[in-house]
Structures are given as C-alpha cells and as structure tokens.
Nucleic acid binder design. Structure first.
Lengths: 216, 216
DNA sequence: AAGGTAGTGTGAGTGTTTTCACAATTTTGC
DNA sequence: GCAAAATTGTGAAAACACTCACACTACCTT
C-alpha cells in the first residue's frame, strides 16, 4: 500500500517513539538527539537514526531532531488524525484494565464498545465504554475492524469465528489459544504466561553480565 | 551458562511448544508431527523442526515426535521441576488478572506475594496470594528474583530502584515507562498501548493477502 | 568569521532468523 | 516383505535486523 519498504521491526518501534516525543514536547523540549532518545526508549541510537532515515532526512547534522517537526511527521505517518475504533471482547480483569486505559491520550485508537457474557456486567459503562451482551455482537459491532480478545481460552475459537464473520480485520489476542483465521486477517498474540516463562528461561540460561566500566 | 547455542527466537517459543504438547497429551495423543504442531501454534513447521534440532534429534523420520518423550525433555529443559517464585507489584485490574491466572497449571512459576499502595487492598488475599503494603517491600520480598510490574507509569522508576536494591534479577514491565536498570538485570517490556497501535499500523500499511487457493 | 563541537545519515559488515528443498529413514498398507 | 507414503534433520540460501564507524554538515562560541 504505502511504501512497504520500512522493516517490520522499525514499524513496531514507531508507536514507542511517538509516545516519547509527545512526552518531550510536554516537557517543553524543542530539540532532541538520537542519543537522548536512545536513553529514554532503550533502543540503540544507530537503530533510531536508521529507523528515522527510512522516512527521509528528518534531522539536521550537528543539531539533532526538532521535536515539533518530528512529532508532526509521525502524527501523519501513524495516522494519528483518523481514529480507529476498537471493540473489546471480554470484560474480566484484563479487559477492565483496557477500559480504564486512556488510549486516546497519545493514541489514534479508541475502545468504542465492549462485550461480555456476564449479565451483571451488561448494561454497565466502564471508562465511558458501554458493555453489551456477547449475543448482541452481530447487531452491535457495526464497522469496527479491530478487536481485543480478553476472554477465556475455551471461547476463543467460537468468538473469533463470529468476529471474522462480521468483517473484523485485526485481533489482539490475549488468550493462550492460538486462533485460526483467514489469511487476510492479522492476529497479534500476547500470551502472558509465555512472556513470564520466557523471562524466567532467559534469566536462567542467558545470564547478563554487569559492565563495571562505563555502564552508561 | 548452559549451551548458549540456542537462538533467542527459539527460546521464546519453547514455553509455547511446551503448553501445546501438554494439551496434546491431555487429549491422549501419543505422537505428533511438526506439521500438526505448526497448525496448532502457528509457527512454520520447518522452524519447529529447526528449533527442536538444537536439542538433538528428538523425533523419528517418517513418524514424527513422541509426545510423552518430547514433553519429558522439555520439562527438564524448561526447568519445570523447580518452581520460580514471582512478586507482583501493583494490584490494579491488570495485576488482579495475573493473580487469578493459574500459572502453576502448565508453568514453573508461582506468584508468591503481591504489593500495593492501597490500604483497602492490603491484607486481602487474591487467588491465594497475600497482598502487602508497598512500604513493606524491603522486609517481605525475601529472595524472590522476578517481579511483574503493573503499577502507574509515574511510580515505575522509584519502585524499580527499590526492587533492584533488593536483588531482583528480572522484571516483566507492563508500565509504559522504559525503566533503567543495571546491565545484569533483565527487563522485558510489554506495552499494551504500543501493541495496539502497532497492530493498527500494520493493518493500514501492511495489508495481508487472501490466498484463494489452498489456504490450508 | 572561523574553528571547534555535536550529531546526522549511511555504506558496509556482521549477526540472527527463517525458509527451501531434499537425502535419509521409518512407518504403513498391501 | 516390498513399495509407497510420511516426516525428520539439516546444508545452503535468503531474508531480515542491528551495529560500527566515519564523512559530512550545521550549529555554537568567541
């Protein structure tokens, strides 16, 4: 679509850059170097410069980057202007955490509607988002194209089928289940148990070394 | 420490494999091919074979892998026998979700203790885990080496310093803040807003194509 | 206005991860 | 017991990602 040239690894870092640039601007900073940004987001400064360079020459040699300009550029690139509506499926603890998270603050996304199977939750509004019964998914989903899945693993496949049938294009799946979807639908898996276990594995098998000298 | 030969990308997939092998065993399956496993975990079958091959020849040509044997092997490799204690810092919605998650089921990790700043939560027990006041961190943390950070971003740096001072070695950070730690401490960041925004970005800029033919 | 300093943008090199594709081997069915 | 089918394990290639190191340029200071 666009220029498919930018690497996926870069694309994943863009939202991160964007948020930190926002912070800088709110702090009143007008310029920033790749080195400073590197300290803040914990990404190598050469990587940051390379990432930015895919979009052209955004900085100035000997000066760094103008925060305002960079931010404006990213706003356009990340489509911060047009808001993407999102549906939340499953209002448990994890789902509720999402509803309280103010994505609008730095983001182009807004949770517009939530669904749950529990009648006690249906009818409530959390964080300004109305909760409907999951049975009403088909009538209520409208043209929302992105869903966050925070339901029990057992339900994942069934609900996914229904979401796909309604024309969902992207799913952020917090379920341990690896859901099956048609090729043209994008699923990102975030598996909390796997993340925790991977961290533990790395701790045991890939010990980090303390750099006594210049540990900047 | 061990054989540092296995790639990190492989290491991250091990917990996933492990869980699905467990599922298979519970379903009573005794053998499995890389192809079947691929369908289940959505990882290319060649990648799975390569991953397994780092540990030696675990399968049999023309047959596949013996579920029981593979599972036993992974149990040892992933240290499923010895349990790793974990501390949870911040019992909000996200933190509570973790407390209800039964990590012990397929995992080698157990949340042993939780902390929060809210006096209403202190003293409670959720999912069998006692909640103490964050002020008691130093006295209560004992020799726990892994922490899950689910607190407001504002607090992240301060609490991280205290955790590090107590000898924490690994942090699973759900805070939007990129925390600073000494070199020998491992931090994995999971940034929910970034994940959501990245998904939206990919949807718009990296459209997937529907394979009409043989979309197996 | 000139020299010093800071800091970009990038060519080239290195490292990591995935994928292809096939010989080797075992199982399965006849 | 043999041929066909299944499926591994891996060499080699490709794809992807990161980092070094430095020429170049813009800013800053005096």
């Amino acid at each position: 679509m666009d220029q498919n040239k930018i690497p996926q690894a870069t694309a994943k870092r863009l939202p991160l850059y964007y948020r930190f640039l926002n912070n800088l601007q709110m702090q009143g900073k007008t310029r920033v170097s790749s080195k400073e940004l590197s300290d803040a987001v914990k990404v190598d400064s050469a990587t940051i410069r390379r990432d930015f360079s895919y979009f052209g020459a955004l900085g100035k040699k000997g000066y760094g980057y103008n925060v305002e300009y960079l931010l404006g550029f990213f706003r356009k690139t990340l489509d911060q202007d047009e808001i993407t509506d999102v549906a939340l499926i499953g209002v448990g603890n994890l789902g509720t955490a999402f509803l309280h998270y103010n994505f609008m603050k730095n983001n182009n996304t807004k949770i517009k509607i939530a669904f749950d199977a529990d009648d006690n939750k249906v009818g409530q509004t959390i964080g300004g988002v109305p909760i409907y019964h999951i049975n009403e998914l088909e009538e209520r989903l409208d043209d929302v194209k992105v869903a966050i899945l925070t339901i029990p693993a057992m339900e994942a496949d069934r609900v996914t089928e229904r979401l796909v049938a309604q024309g969902i294009k992207g799913i952020l799946n917090f379920t341990p289940a690896r859901i099956t979807v048609p090729d043209d639908i994008r699923v990102h898996h975030i598996d909390l148990a796997v993340e925790l276990q991977a961290l533990v594995y790395f701790l045991k098998h890939y010990p980090l070394e303390k750099t006594e000298l210049y540990s900047e």
